[in-house]
Structures are given as C-alpha cells and as structure tokens.
Simulated scan of single mutants.
Amino acid sequence: MAHYDLEEQEQIDSLKTWWNMYGNLITGVVVAGAVAVVGWQGWNWHQRGQAAQASAIYGVLEQAVAARDAQKVKAAAGELAEKFGGTAYAGMGALVAARQSFEAGDLKTATAQLTWAVENGKDEVRDLARLRLAAVQLDEKAYDQALKHLEAAHAPAFDTRFLELKGDILAAQGKGADAKAAYKAALDKMTDKAGPTRELLQQKLDSLGEAA
C-alpha cells in the first residue's frame, strides 16, 4: 500500500483545515450561483411564453380590425393590457384598437386606450400614443391637455411631428404667432428638403400670413 510522505500529509492536513473554515461559504456561493442561473433561465422561459401568447392575441386583434368587429377588438386589446401589459404587443394593441375606436367615432374609448399606451408603453409606442392622444384631444378642443402631452420628452425622430401638431393646436386656439413659431421649428427639424409632408407643413405656415 502506498504511503503519503510527510510533505503530502501536511498538504492534506492544510487542505482539510482550509475546507473546514471556508467549505460552507464556498458551497453556499456555488448553490446561490446555481439558483441564480436556474432563476434566470426560468425568467427567460416565462418571458418567451408571455410573448408567444401575446403574439397570438395580437393576431386575433388584427383579424378583428380587418373584420371591423369593434367588440372583439376591444376585448383583445383589453386582454393584452390586463394579462400581458409588460410585452410590446400590449402597447401596439392599444394603438391599433385606439385607431379603430377613433374611426368608429368612439372617442372616449380611443382616449382610454391611448392613455394606457402613454402610461405603459415604451419608446416609440409611447411617443406615438402621445401624438395620437393629443390629436384626439385637439378634435375634442381639449387644447391644454393636448399641449401638455406634446411637452413630454420624446425621441428626436418625432420632433417634427410633435412640433407640427403643437402648431395645429396653437392655431386652433387663435395663437397665430406661437403656431408660426412651432411650424417653423418643425420645418427646421425636417431632414427632407422636398416632399408632400414638407409642402403641407409649409402651407400651414403660409396660411397664417403675418400673424402676430
């Protein structure tokens, strides 16, 4: 039988002492790390499952819009908001449903759906919701509320649209000089030097004449 020499035995004794001091700590760290990995994988799995279910409901919503089934649109959008509010599909569903409600003349429902998207949507969805909500409020002559939404921070890509709508609201209030300033700022933000959108914006500006 092989025998450990004195140096090997000392190394073993040192290792035993070290393990007695730190073994429980190391085991705890390893277990915690394993739990974290499992938890992360479980969370990712949950998120993928949520997205898949939300995608299916969003598909139902799109079909309902195509069929002009207002009740089914509202139901699908409501389910997305209630059960899958953390997914991108919920915000997009609110925008789609709001457009259908607006076109149907149901401004109250459109306002509620857009408000939800403003409060719960992310990035471009939130910015689009603010624009559309402000446009609905313009139609309802709720000018101050509409302007408040347009003052919120938004992505630079939406600068022109926010400023143009601000000009529309100010013009509706009879504030010609302020409306002209908003239209001019919108034109300055545009990257296109020609095109129907720029022409329409220029026409709005020109229609104000020498407003002061």
Rank of each mutant, 00 (worst) to 15 (best):
Q9K: 03
Q41S: 11
K83R: 15
A110V: 08
A146H: 07
L147I: 05
L208T: 06
V38W: 14
G42Q: 15
A75Q: 14
A54C: 09
D159L: 03
D192T: 12
H154W: 07
R161C: 00
I169L: 03
Q41D: 10
K72H: 05
A66T: 11
A142W: 01
A77Q: 03
E8W: 03
W18A: 10
Q11P: 05
Q41I: 04
D13H: 07
Q41E: 14
A67R: 15
A32H: 04
V60N: 10
W116N: 01
Q63Y: 03
E10F: 00
E210D: 15
K166C: 02
D188A: 11
V29Y: 02
P196A: 00
W40K: 10
W19H: 08
D106L: 00
D5H: 08
R161L: 13
P156S: 03
G91C: 13
L138D: 04
L6W: 01
A142F: 00
E82D: 14
K83Q: 14
A155T: 13
D139R: 15
L187K: 05
E140P: 06
D192H: 08
W45Y: 12
T109E: 13
A194D: 11
A76D: 11
L114M: 07
K175E: 03
A66K: 14
D13T: 09
G42H: 11
H46C: 00
Q53V: 07
K204V: 04
A142Q: 15
L95H: 01
G167Y: 05
A110F: 08
W40F: 09
H149I: 05
E82I: 03
K148H: 07
A179Y: 09
A54D: 04
Q113I: 02
A134T: 10
A211N: 05
R126A: 14
V65H: 03
V136W: 02
K175R: 12
A52F: 05
I57Y: 02
V96N: 01
L138M: 12
G39P: 07
A70C: 00
K72L: 09
G86E: 14
V37S: 13
Q63S: 12
A94Y: 01
E62Q: 15
T27S: 08
E8M: 14
D144S: 10
G33R: 11
K108A: 06
E8K: 08
R130L: 10
V37A: 12
G85Y: 04
I57D: 01
F162N: 00
E103Q: 11
W19T: 13
V73I: 13
L201F: 06
D144A: 14
Q11R: 15
Y58N: 09
M190C: 06
L208W: 11
A66W: 06
A185L: 07
E8R: 08
A36C: 05
